[in-house]
Amino acid sequence: MKERSVRGLIIVGFAVAVLVVAGLGFAYKMSEFAVTIMKDEIEGFGAVAISIYLVGMVPILFFTLWAIATGRFRDIEHPKYRLLELDDEIERGGGVSYRVGATVAGGRGAR
């Protein structure tokens, strides 16, 4: 059990570190971006790169919200065990055959 709590601590630590450090960088860049856009100077050129980033990031934001909303993170450690189960199932089932149109067993509800 001790190892579990250490693991939890490390994960939370990383989550916080990523959020804080990267969030600071993010906030910094966005505020500079806003300032530059308002200033009517040649420096607005660099805003192009950030604009691309900003727009490219929006789908990712949607993905995160969607993933949280649909409960993708509810049983967060499940897929890593499933990976090994799947490998066993596939190897046992004659290796590499797949029946077209067949419903695959062991899918939903495997958790």
């Binding site: 691309i52 929006v58 789908p59 993905f63």
Partner: peptide, 24 residues
């Protein structure tokens, strides 16, 4: 959703950005 946003990206790149760039 991602597709629509991608379309917006295209619009942004080709429409808004040159204006931004060429402003001054």
């Amino acid at each position: 959703i991602a597709g629509i946003v991608t379309f917006l990206l295209g619009f942004f790149l080709q429409g808004v950005m040159p204006v931004l760039t060429l402003r001054k």
